[in-house]
Nucleic acid binder design. Structure first.
Length: 239
DNA sequence: AAACAATGCAACCGCACGTTT
DNA sequence: GAAACGTGCGGTTGCATTGTT
């Protein structure tokens, strides 16, 4: 069995004092972010190593950006959450100076939930509740359409090529509404997905040279099979 | 001014996962 | 291969602050 990370009877809990903060800052400045387990004792703190790590990452780290989220940050959170779900650390990784805890708190704040609802999006599952949200043009031919599935769809320019990224959540292959001819509604065109996504829950990336309906049908079938066999969603990438 | 509700945020907890022994 | 360890993540809680009645 695993031993507890610290002796809880001898550790402080709750809010950190200025003295504790300073001890932690001084120690990390001198030694860097080394073994967190050893930090409390070495720094003279009556705290659990995990608590020290959290305090440093979420509050004391010099790169942490304080203050309200700007509108572009808010938009990016909404878009990335539609694509990645509650993977707060991945989302925070695209927001310089923001921590996963901060993004998570912000997402769960009434402010953002109200905004999403006003856009017609269910904050819990990103389902479109009416046809006002996330209108997008279809590929390069500017057709607009709306729908009601949870597939995420995004376009961005990577290596000067137009890339459409379709993310297929667990439940999207089951409903009859997922006709391959549907123009699924998900994310707006302006999402820059120039990012390296390491999604451990995805079985694989499926790439196609052309995103025709036949290709999409075939890829969906493949993804559905993988989902049934592995219980994991598949990321579909069309070029 | 007081009471209550709503909100924001820091921190804790348990679990999962990769690494080391 | 199994157990122990260290770390990171996401969910949840609790408290302080702010707004409303």
């Amino acid at each position: 069995m695993r031993s507890p990370c610290c002796d809880k009877q001898e550790t402080n809990k709750g809010a950190w004092s200025k003295e504790e903060d300073q001890k932690l800052i001084d120690y990390i400045r001198a030694h860097g972010e080394v073994s967190w387990r050893s930090v409390p004792k070495a720094a003279g703190l009556l705290r659990c190593g995990k608590s020290c790590r959290l305090r440093w990452i979420n509050y004391l780290h010099p790169d942490v950006k304080r203050g309200n989220f700007e509108e572009d940050e808010e938009d990016l959170i909404i878009k990335l959450h539609a694509l990645l779900g509650n993977r707060w650390s991945l989302i925070a990784g695209r927001l310089p100076g923001r921590t996963d805890n901060e993004v998570k708190n912000y997402w769960n704040s009434p402010h953002l939930r109200k905004k999403l609802k006003s856009m017609g999006v269910d904050p819990d599952n990103h389902r479109v509740t009416h046809n006002t949200a996330f209108r997008r043009s279809q590929s390069s031919n500017n057709n607009t359409a709306t729908g009601s599935t949870t597939d995420g769809v995004a376009n961005s320019n990577v290596n000067e090529q137009r890339v459409e990224l379709r993310w297929a959540p667990l439940d999207s292959f089951n409903a009859e509404e997922n006709n391959p001819n549907d123009d699924n509604v998900g994310l707006p065109d302006d999402l820059n997905l120039d990012l390296t996504i390491a999604v451990p829950s995805c079985t694989q990336l499926v790439e196609k040279s052309q995103g025709s309906n036949n290709d999409f049908t075939e890829a969906k079938t493949m993804a559905k099979t993988l989902l049934e066999n592995t219980g994991k969603p598949t990321l579909l990438l069309f070029r």
